[in-house]
């Protein structure tokens, strides 16, 4: 095997794994640390991706934007936009039963998908947005050097997010969050403040998902509604569950593992099935991952790494 293409593919693989890891960290904050069930991951990722693409892309005559702003501004804008979307959903659904949040986030993802498909003047409709700027591509071209540079950027962002989340979880804020999740009595005694903590965690998590979307958009260079289908939500969930929710390392490890399984199984299907059957093969791939996630839920509910056994539900009640 030649070295350059192999390295190039490895970088490509790791960039995606890293982007997924950022999203999985966001989901871990929501689910692993706060117990919030978000089924709209793909929607919040899409908001971030489109926001950054609009802010940084070159102007288009028949569409809003782009504004040609620096990529960094796009990334921050992505987080802000996803955060606002999360705030709206959170205010409506967070004070209710936990499964209502699941249904509402599912709904927002459906609506975001509709807007992406139909609001041509903003999102470019089914064709999406092309020529999203790739940072440093002018200097580095499109080859291995750029892939490696972008990998460095993704790793940097992932590292900062990971570090910040670890600090946050260890802070008083994180301890309150855990208390709310583990102990209904504590949650009840906090009353409205508990709802505020939940909302903050939800918004922060969705901001990370939006950032993940922006990282994706600037790596691939074009986005379309079909990039943000429910299967994306499912992939991120699979990553968190396989790695073990409640640990940031689990979220990151799960992202690498599931993306590896996904890539290998996708490669096998492409290699083994004739061209006419590829669409069916892709469906089978999702079925297999669906079975994997179910099997892990049943057989190894704490995931590969599992949650640190800090507080059991019983001990918290004593």
């Amino acid at each position: 095997m030649e070295l350059i293409p192999a390295l190039s593919y490895l970088a490509f693989f790791l960039v995606f794994a890293g982007i997924f890891a950022v999203m999985a960290l966001g989901l871990n904050l929501q689910w692993g640390f706060t117990g919030l069930f978000n089924v709209g991951v793909a929607g919040f990722v899409a908001v971030g991706a489109y926001a950054s693409a609009l802010l940084t892309g070159p102007p288009e005559p028949d569409r809003l934007g782009g504004f040609g702003l620096p990529v960094l501004v796009g990334w921050i804008g992505a987080m802000v936009a996803s955060g606002i979307a999360a705030f709206i959903v959170g205010v409506a659904a967070l004070r209710l039963r936990e499964d209502y949040l699941a249904i509402t986030t599912f709904g927002i993802a459906v609506v975001i998908q509709l807007v992406a498909l139909n609001a041509q003047a903003i999102t470019g409709g089914p064709f999406g947005i092309q020529s999203i700027p790739k940072p440093f591509a002018d200097a580095l071209g499109a080859g291995l050097a750029w892939n490696l540079t972008y990998l460095g950027l993704v790793v940097l962002v992932l590292g900062v997010a990971w570090w910040a989340l670890d600090r946050l979880v260890a802070s008083p804020w994180g301890r309150v969050l855990r208390a709310i999740r583990e102990d209904e009595l504590a949650a009840a005694s906090l009353g409205k403040r508990a709802a505020a903590f939940r909302l903050q965690s939800f918004v922060l998590g969705c901001m990370l998902m939006g950032l993940g979307g922006a990282l994706y958009a600037h790596f691939v260079g074009y986005i379309a509604p079909e990039d943000f289908l429910p299967v994306l939500t499912f992939q991120v969930w699979a990553m968190l569950i396989v790695g073990g929710s409640g640990r940031n390392a689990g979220a990151v490890l799960g992202a690498v593992l599931v993306w590896a399984i996904w890539s290998v199984s996708g490669g096998l299907i492409r290699g083994l099935l004739p061209a006419a059957e590829q669409a069916r093969g892709a469906a089978l791939q999702v079925v297999l991952i669906g079975v994997l996630i179910a099997a892990i839920l049943v057989l190894r509910p704490r995931g590969v790494l599992g949650e640190r056994a800090t507080v059991s539900r019983h001990a918290a009640g004593d």
Binding site: A102, F234, V286, V287
Partner: peptide
Amino acid sequence: AITLVIASFGAALALRNLVQF
């Protein structure tokens, strides 16, 4: 209960794609 919701989400995706397959 919420684990059941995740599982149903996974099962739904698998069932939907099995139909497509």
